[in-house]
Computed example of a mutant assay.
Amino acid sequence: MADLSDFPITQKWAPENPDIIQLYSFPTPNGVKVSIALEEMGLAYEPHKVTLADADVKSPEFLSLNPNNKIPAIIDPDGPDGPIGLFESGAILLYLAGKTGQLLGNGATDRAKVTQWLMFQMGGLGPMLGQLGFFYKFAGSEWEDKRPQERYISEGKRLLAVLDKELDGRDWIAGDYSIADIAIAPWLRALDFYGAKDVVGWDDHKNLVAYLDRFLERPAVRKGLVIPPRD
């Protein structure tokens, strides 16, 4: 049995089976990337619900694994040199794809293309749509100055247009289905949660509409979207 005692997070979220990957997450767009990937890759894992409350993400135990106090994070007891802890959803996706040889394409060129679109999500789509949600649905929507809201609506439209054009004539963003799709699609789905589909002209992006539908039809996606359960 693997010894995970060097990871203080296990004192707050104790593993039932320390021999499998431990997932610390919540079903947000970033959180479900990892649960979906684990399901797609067929890896055994144990999910632990880490809420977005300070009592969880700012607890000493969670900060010991992720000093940036954001979900998701993992511990893999079967790391390359022994147990390894990782945070940042994009880094975890790359690690899991490298570990299994899955969802990274075939060869160095495919890997570079998949990584390119993964970085597009990490550096652009996710942060910009997250800000759109804040200024359109949450506290920022109450601000009298609407320039920030207009800024992120405009940038959201621009990024959707980039994706819609790239998906013309193809099913997935970088050739075969990959971790890039697992990163991108949950953020497109978040537009519904933000109530922002109309304001960004979602229905005008026919390629994106079909793309998200394809993604949501995958059994592993349907399962991963609700792991760990909110309740």
Rank of each mutant, 00 (worst) to 15 (best):
K58R: 15
W172L: 08
G79N: 06
R214D: 12
V57E: 09
I182L: 03
N106Y: 01
A37G: 02
L125R: 07
A180W: 06
R170I: 14
H48I: 10
L160Q: 11
K70Y: 00
E155T: 10
D78I: 00
F215Y: 15
M122G: 05
W117I: 10
H48N: 06
V199I: 15
D204R: 14
D198Y: 06
A190D: 08
I182H: 04
D168K: 11
Y95T: 09
A53S: 10
N68T: 11
W172V: 08
L86H: 10
A183H: 04
K206W: 02
E142W: 02
K197G: 12
I84W: 01
H48E: 05
L103F: 15
F62A: 10
P229L: 07
F193K: 09
F193Y: 14
D192V: 08
I153P: 05
M122V: 15
L65Q: 03
I75H: 04
V221H: 01
K197Q: 15
K113D: 04
L188D: 02
K165W: 01
V221R: 02
V114S: 06
E150M: 09
L129P: 00
L216W: 00
E40V: 01
H205D: 04
L23H: 04
W143K: 14
L208V: 11
D6W: 00
G156I: 08
D3H: 11
D192I: 03
N66G: 03
K99Q: 11
T51Q: 13
G31N: 01
L96C: 10
N30A: 14
D181C: 07
L129G: 00
T10H: 02
T28G: 06
D213S: 13
T109C: 00
P15A: 06
T100L: 02
I21Q: 12
F135T: 06
Q131I: 07
F193H: 11
K70Q: 13
K33I: 02
N68G: 04
Q116R: 05
